[in-house]
Amino acid sequence: MTVLHSAPKFASNEGVIEAVSETISVWLIEAIEAHGEVIFRVERDAVDKVLRILRDDHAYQQLMEIAGVDYPSRPERFEVVYMLQSLTKNHRVMVKCSASEDTPVPTVTTLWPNAGWLEREVFDMYGVTFAGNPDLRRILTDYGFEGHPFRKDFPMTGYTELRYSEEEKRVVYEPVVLAQEMRSFDFLSPWEGADYVLPGDEKSRGAPAVAEPKTTEKPADTGAGKKADEAAAKPVGGAAPAQKDSGKGAPGAPDPTSKEGGR
């Protein structure tokens, strides 16, 4: 595919997959090159080993980012993605592994000191734990926060809200109360595979199949019965009487001041 876009151009991906795959083949699940990115999917337990090899033998000196992603339909629902950068080769690769809530990922704080906060963030947002991280506290959410907000099943509105209570003279936490239901607009075209039922279309899906499909060959099959008598359609009597003016004026506003005066 010819590159048309003007996104950052780093060194060519040619030969990178082969060279790296050779050294990490034991733990490698798959190596992908798509959209100009090189991605290595590796076994979770060996992430630290793989990253060490990439850092020491392949000159990916910098760990720029660790991202968590949630795919709720997968057996191991989370993905942890490491973005590495080589200053000497001017190249970037991604390494990813899957994880679930109760399968800790080995920490890479032993390789890069800045992995500490990055792992804390993934833990805070997704609940993925990192074995060996010495300081796995929450980082972005509030003190005392419960839950992991970036999971797909965590509602965007959250569960609690806080306000300053004038009575108690302090900030109080309360369950979220929405004046109207949270609206999530879905503009996907219904003709292109939107997986919801359009209003009025409920019966179209899941309706039981009939043995004999109904056909309307003759007018009698329509179930409309005989044509009504034409005479019945004729109007009877004159038109409806016009609204008569009773002659009374509409009640006006009271006089500005009465003699008796107000209270």
């Binding site: 950052p8 798509a34 990115e37 991605i39 980012e65 970037r92």
Partner: peptide, 17 residues
């Protein structure tokens, strides 16, 4: 698909995955 794109923001590498 997935991409990681980083540019040189005034403060350093600003990336979007």
């Amino acid at each position: 698909g997935e991409v990681y794109v980083a540019t040189e923001s005034p403060k350093g590498e600003f990336g979007v995955y």
